[in-house]
Every structure is written in C-alpha cells, then in structure tokens.
Design a protein around this nucleic acid. Structure first.
Lengths: 119, 119
DNA sequence: CACAAGCACAACCATTTGGTTGCAAAAAAT
DNA sequence: ATTTTTTGCAACCAAATGGTTGTGCTTGTG
C-alpha cells in the first residue's frame, strides 16, 4: 500500500491514499484486472490486444500498484504482475452499506409519519 | 453499453452514458449517495456540511444523474433528489465475476501443470 | 561480442475533473 | 410590491487523467 504524503500550502501535510474506487473507475484498468484475475502475467502479455501502448499500460499499472491491487515479481528481465483482489472488499462493503440504508428508507418515512401523528 | 439520448431536467443531453464506476470514484459523490440513501433531499440539504459550494454539488449531481443514480422531483421552487441504487448492482456483479475467476487461478495452474506432465 | 527483448523514466499534449465566482430567474414569504 | 430562498447557467481556473513519443538501461540469446 502506497501512501502519498502531500505538503500543501500553510505547511499542511495531507496524507492521500489512492483508493480502490479510483482504481476501478477506468475501463482500461478494469480490463487489466480481469486479465490478471486468471493468473500472473508479464507486462508484454497485458499490453497484448489492449489497443494502447506499453507506456500507457505502465501508467495504469502504477495506479493499480499504488492502490495495493497488484504486486510485482521480477524474473530475469521480465516483470510479472499479480492481482490482489482483496482490496475490492472495500467497494462491496460500501455498496452493501448504502443499499442497506436505502432499503430502510420507507421504514424511516413510516416512523416519521407515526411520530408526527402522535404530536 | 447502453446509450441513452435524453433531454430532461438539468438541461442534460445524455449522448454517452457515464458509468457507475465513475460515479462512485469521487469521495464527494459517495458522500452524496450515502446522504441520499436515507431518503430524498433537496439540493440545499445536500450542500449542508458538505464543505463545498452549491455549484460544486450541482456538478456532482449532474454526473450522478447522467449515470442514472439519482432522479429529480420538482416541488415548488425546491428540487428534490432521490437515489436509485439499483445501478450499483453492476459494480458488485463485476467485482464478483473477477473474484470468482481469481479464486480459480490455482486450479487453472494445477490443470496446466497436469497437462504439461502428460506430454 | 553484438543484438534483441523487456522494461523504466522523462517530457509532452489534449481533455477531463473538481472546484470557484458572478449573475439571473422563479417561487415563496413579508 | 419587495425581498428572500432556492435554484440554474456560464465563465474561469489549477490540477489530474490518459494517452503519446523518445531515450536508455538491463538481461537473456545467437
């Protein structure tokens, strides 16, 4: 997990972490994640049929790495890339929490109406 | 990918469909979604304690609307905003599909090793 | 050795993003 | 009738994003 320490105006130090939401926001990165879901690949293999340049892919890999969604293993001159999908739990948890609240919104409205009736 | 061409509230003309991944990529938009999960609110209520200006919020609402994650209802001079969290299914489905594939990666490796042993 | 494969790093570029300020319109309240 | 609330719209801005080309450094291979 990479933490970006940003020194802002007034000498403020902000600690920014790239998050998983940002990681999966881009369609190319989702494609990379799906390719890697099948197992580790080297960068050349990821570039194959991606439609963009190696350097473009490298930038996306950097983002994914900074989110802790992939890890690297050097093997000779090749760099193998492996997915770490545990991070996606955060997204699912957030979605479920929101939907749980959303599912209760009518109940809450009923409670509100009941309360106002009493007064 | 579904492309909707809708000319409706907010003066939005939707030609390309923004996707849900982009909608939840921004922390401010996630905050808005969570606020709305409890039930409909007008724009002023969403702005409350958000730390950014009404116009800033309006831009985020436009994005959320274009993703089909919120809908509007005019009531006098107030514009009420309601969440449509069904859209989040797409995210959960994608995550689950990736994780399913990921869970099978060792099995695949075993199969591969078994195949090569035969030859 | 010479050469190719695989990759990292830097510079550059156009567009998008995420915010701001200012102003105008319409509905409600006084 | 005037003022206040609530909102919409446009212009502006800095920074981030998503790509590109070019260069050069390792590491295997003939």
């Amino acid at each position: 997990m990479v933490v970006l320490v940003v020194v802002q105006p007034f000498g403020c130090i902000m600690i920014e972490r790239r998050d998983v939401y940002q990681a999966i926001a881009d369609p190319t990165r989702r494609m990379i994640i799906q390719k890697l879901s099948g197992g580790p690949l080297n960068i050349g293999q990821i570039v194959e049929d991606s439609g963009i340049t190696r350097q473009g892919i490298a930038k996306h890999l950097k983002v994914l790495y900074e989110c802790g969604m992939i890890s690297f293993t050097q093997k000779g001159r090749e760099q193998f890339c492996e997915a770490r999908l545990e991070q996606l739990d955060e997204v699912v948890d957030w979605v479920n929490a929101s939907r749980k609240l959303w599912g209760q919104r009518f109940k809450k409205l009923d409670n509100f109406l009941a309360e106002t009736k009493k007064q």
